[in-house]
Design a protein around this nucleic acid. Structure first.
Lengths: 392, 392
DNA sequence: TCAACGAATGAATCCTCGA
DNA sequence: ATCGAGGATTCATTCGTTG
């Protein structure tokens, strides 16, 4: 992990390449803030500003980095001679290398700033997303999904020489392979999707009409403003209310507007004061949703753990009582210490359930039933009652 | 042997690029064939075999390389059954760097073998596609589109820790930015898409059921067999009848089977003799479509929704099948790219319907009928069915 | 004969806590 | 760090069996 993509690319990436060539290199070790200034826009160079942020301080990163637009000039030389196909002509790739170095710099800083359970989202198109994805893997990020934003109303390909470019790609990644406790509201998304898992292909219209921020002359204020619905799904998926969302390429402030509406904090970085101005006015006009409208749907795995012994102790079931599976075929006797007895085996509700079925595992809470008023009810019902009464 | 060089072979003096896999390095300058052996499978190492192919000799490359999945433990479904993982040796690489070197080697050779107007398609998932895409750009390929294969029936995320991984990504690239005359049947694709431009997101079901090649014991013969509908759309988009399609990771031979059906030639490379055997038998059983069903359309435009091509790809109607109007007076033949053929005209369902009736316009969905069980039903019924199953 | 039901399965980087 | 145990978790489709 964290290996360089190629030895040659690594060599280029290692020497310092400034942002786009024109600005001065960012200081290596700027003074680092001890606290984050929340819900504000830092106007300045993205990488330099990131270097000043405290480590492990944000819960979510959303980034819409610049595409590698200078590519066209750099690669415009005639290149149809097959024999030169793998020629190590490095200036030909100079702009790729510069873009890679820039990507590497901001991603590395973003990773440092992320809390251990934070995740990062990056959006891009085929012009840059492959380079971003590879760099991200090289830095040790662990990709969780790639997500496709299918545009309901994409711009057609006017010259008819390609397929309509009708999607953009997002990469969702945790800090590393070991960071397994990242925030993800699986149940909430499923509930909002007709009780089906949310898939990796999302359909949204482009940001147009009222939502599109205009300048004084009525023209669009920013060329790549993203739809708020996209940001909302991201934040609802991968953050809690009150969390801090960092956007190092703040632009017209969609991240800030959605964060405010959904009860999240934001930290924005934007080098263009004009964009920052549009964003400030936009965000100020946002009315936050009421708290209960943005509260996270409860997840079963987040509920407090109740040992089966507590069910016995609370008197919902009695030592010596017989539990069965839903069909009544498998039987076991409750012991006073909260284990089950299915002669000759003794063990937890899970272990005995697995044993009797010949399976490697079993959720004893849903497998075992007690007879009440002539019908069999799962013992999970008792656990639910205890939780409703405020715990074990 | 091999002292006699072709001109193309002699022109190639290559930089040393070491192969980092576990097998012995391929010969640096193997004797290069002067002619391609068409419609045959070369059994052997992909890169070594590619080095022997003549330069500028193929019209299209489709590649389904190893994904480098990096799976850890076993995964069980909620019912405790085990997922049959892709744990084959051919998918294991020591590091990202090793995978990148492998990718660079086969892509460079594929580029050399491509004719100037040829294009390359690579399929992958988030595990490998970013590295493939970046390498491809480094080598001078020019990306035309990235295409998303949306899976109609993907495997769910059983642990509820991510989004359903419901798509794979294809990259479509020409040899370089200057190669502007690449093959692309814009009009045909548009005609088969209800006269709308074909988008970059494609919906297909997984390869299952009858289409899935089985071994002697009835188990899947290859772990990653791709659907024929996917390959068919690629070949109809980016090749002519009679063209040569190269597949350096031939596997179960989907590329060969579709090429034969659509009147294209193939060159397959596969290092596993068992896979090659399955592929040979499979391809031999394919019945090529009649010539006029696969000839490319010189058609123009007319009007809008669910692509008729999807009806064809889903198997509701067959290429070569005759559609009629409700009275049976007008007739047209379905072509593999989703257009209709009523000699001498070729066009969309709407355009051909209008033409035959001498009207300025026509709704092909209600005009055209297919015969089923002795009665004529409108093709709109198939569209309704597809919609009921979840969309375009 | 057909409907109903259940088993099987697909390129998958698939848990979390406490001792 | 590692280890063991609790216990949470699935969608669309095909194909074979049962009634």
């Amino acid at each position: 992990m964290g290996t360089l993509r190629t030895a040659a690319a690594g060599a280029v990436a290692r020497k310092q390449v400034s942002r786009t060539g024109s600005t001065a290199p960012a200081p290596r070790n700027p003074p680092r803030s001890e606290v984050l200034a929340l819900d504000e826009i830092i106007v300045g160079d993205c990488i330099e500003a990131l270097r000043r942020l405290p480590s492990e301080s944000v819960d979510l990163v959303f980034a819409d980095p610049p595409y590698n637009l200078q590519l066209e000039g750099a690669l415009s030389r005639p290149d149809q001679s097959l024999v030169d196909a793998v020629d190590d002509d490095w200036d030909k790739f100079a702009s790729f290398a510069a873009y890679d170095a820039f990507t590497r710099d901001w991603l590395a800083e973003a990773r440092r700033v992320m809390k251990p359970n934070a995740t990062l989202w990056v959006i891009g198109s085929y012009h840059n997303i492959f380079r971003v994805g590879a760099t991200l893997q090289d830095l040790g990020f662990w990709i969780l999904n790639d997500i496709v934003w299918r545009k309901a109303n994409p711009m057609p390909n006017f010259r008819g020489r390609r397929f309509t470019n009708a999607h953009e790609t997002l990469i969702w990644a945790s800090k590393g392979q070991e960071a397994k406790r990242y925030t993800f509201h699986y149940e909430a998304l499923k509930g909002g999707n007709d009780d089906l898992q949310m898939r990796s292909d999302w359909l949204f219209p482009l940001c147009t009409g009222e939502e599109r921020i205009k300048d004084e002359s009525g023209r669009k204020a920013h060329p790549t403003q993203k739809p708020e619905a996209l940001l909302a799904r991201i934040m609802l998926s991968a953050s809690h209310p009150g969390d801090v969302v960092l956007d190092p390429f703040f632009g017209s402030g969609t991240t800030g507007a959605v964060a405010r509406r959904l009860g999240r904090h934001f930290v924005g970085i934007e080098r263009d004061e004009a964009y920052a101005g549009f964003a400030r006015r936009r965000i100020a006009a946002v009315e936050p949703l009421p708290e209960d409208a943005v509260a996270t749907a409860p997840a079963k795995r987040a509920e407090p753990r109740i040992p089966f012994l507590s069910i016995v102790e609370a008197g919902y079931v009695q030592p010596g009582e017989v539990l069965t599976c839903s069909a009544g075929r498998h039987r076991a006797t409750i012991r006073a210490d909260g284990t089950l007895h299915a002669p000759p085996a003794i063990g937890s509700i899970h272990k005995i359930g697995a044993l009797l079925q010949g399976l490697p595992a079993c959720n004893g809470w849903t497998f075992w039933h007690a007879e009440r008023d002539g019908s069999r009810i799962p013992i999970d019902a008792f656990r639910t009652e205890i939780r409703a009464r405020g715990g074990a």
